[in-house]
Nucleic acid binder design. Structure first.
Length: 389
DNA sequence: TCTGGGGTCCTAGGACCC
DNA sequence: TCTGGGGTCCTAGGACCC
């Protein structure tokens, strides 16, 4: 494939969760509002029939912001920020709990709408996609305009689109004119439009890499592009160093992947308060079993079984440990998962209080018509020769 | 005032096999 | 008996993304 001739779009829904909530509560339009926190904070109804919304200032406990309206962002809150911190910045902002079922519904609607115009779509989570437009006869601006209109018709929601020769640049570009924007760039635009930006804008450079680059005097993508590839490989390893250099030069041959099998399915929960391994043993046991039941249900619903069972623990000092075990055959029932996960748990020294517990199943395979031996209880009984049927 | 929940990918060491 | 290279699987941790 000649990568230089591709046309790739990145489409990002604008403040997606918050925008979906505004469809439901239009009276909140124009106000600072954040989505996040726990199950509570559902809007109530006052005696006069007006809806009562929780305010950020009333929030107590753990939790982070998942999305916020642009009005809230103007006050300095951002996604990932702890709600307690956000409540000091924007105490009067409305707080709504996340409703993932609703977001998944609108996610399906906007993806189906895009599909009618450009079918080569790579899923990147609930609110963004890449689209391969290379084969379309239409020009990029026409395509972007039509896709945005289709999304709006299907959802009443706006999105932002970047179109460039690859995913890396398109991802950067979709952010440039947000919200409701279209940005179309070629490789010639790199020095003017991309190089002045901070390295952090590159998808794949996170807080750690950015900090390390800053210590080397590199803060902009242009400075990264000017850095010697061998120098970068010395500091960041062969693979990541070479990638950093290529990325800064806008080079990315990664394809738009239209179908991918899941690699793992997991459930985890952060407790309202830290739990003591012994003092809260019963509570922990219930939570642990419940996680196994939920993972098992997720496996069944998605039609997979898994051979590797793992657990995740986070202590009160935020130190995180994982343990996993690979079984001789894939399983999906809660009892088998609980058994394996319980074995993993025994391998962790429990000296501190816990704040999080998680259960994960990986090494997935489809739970086909051709079931594995252990998958079907009936078959398992038959194998042991004591099937009453 | 600490930091959610669901994922993917990468690295690195050890076991084990050829 | 030692050396060693390559490949795969398993496990643990960490960076990163939405």
């Amino acid at each position: 494939m000649d990568a230089s001739n591709r046309r790739i779009a990145h489409l990002d829904m604008d403040a997606f969760y918050a925008s979906v909530e505004l469809l439901r509560y239009p009276e909140l339009r124009g106000q600072p509002m954040v989505v996040g926190g726990r199950r509570a904070d559902q809007p109530g109804t006052a005696a006069d029939g007006t809806r009562q919304f929780a305010r950020l200032r009333d929030y107590r406990g753990r939790g982070v912001i998942t999305t916020s309206t642009y009005e809230a962002r103007a006050l300095g809150v951002s996604s990932g920020m702890g709600l307690m911190k956000a409540s000091r910045l924007a105490p009067d902002a409305i707080l709504l709990p996340a409703d993932f079922a609703a977001y998944r519904h609108y996610s399906g609607l906007f993806k189906a709408a895009v599909m009618t115009i450009a079918p080569q779509i790579e899923d990147r989570g609930i609110d963004e996609i890449y689209i391969d437009l290379t084969e379309s006869p239409l020009d990029s601006l026409t395509l972007a305009t039509r896709i945005k209109q289709a999304v709006r018709d299907a959802t009443q929601l706006s999105c932002s689109i970047g179109i460039t020769p690859n995913k890396l640049l398109s991802k950067i570009c979709s952010d440039l004119e947000k919200p409701d924007g279209i940005t179309i760039l070629g490789m010639d635009d790199l020095p003017i439009r991309i190089w002045p930006m901070p390295v952090r804008k590159i998808n794949g450079i996170g807080p750690k890499a950015a900090e390390k680059l800053a210590a080397l005097g590199i803060t902009t993508i242009g400075q990264l592009a000017a850095a010697d590839s061998v120098f970068l490989q010395m500091h960041f390893g062969r693979s990541f160093g070479a990638w950093l250099h290529a990325a800064a030069h806008g080079i990315d041959d990664s394809p738009v992947v239209t179908h991918a099998e899941p690699k793992s399915i997991s459930r985890e929960t952060t407790f309202e308060r830290d739990l003591h391994p012994r003092g809260d043993r019963l509570t922990l046991g219930e939570i642990f079993s419940d996680l196994c039941v939920r993972v098992a249900a997720d496996l069944k619903n998605s039609g997979y079984v898994g051979r590797t069972i793992g657990i995740k623990l986070r202590f009160d000092d935020f130190q995180t440990v994982t343990r996993d075990v690979t079984l001789p055959a894939a399983v999906s029932d809660p009892a088998a998962i609980r058994r394996a996960a319980g074995g993993c748990l025994k391998r962790v020294p429990l000296a501190r209080k816990l704040r999080l517990l998680g259960v994960r199943v990986s090494a997935l395979q489809p739970a086909d018509a051709w079931q594995t031996e252990e998958e079907s209880p009936q078959q398992e009984l038959a194998l042991h020769g004591d099937d009453p049927a």
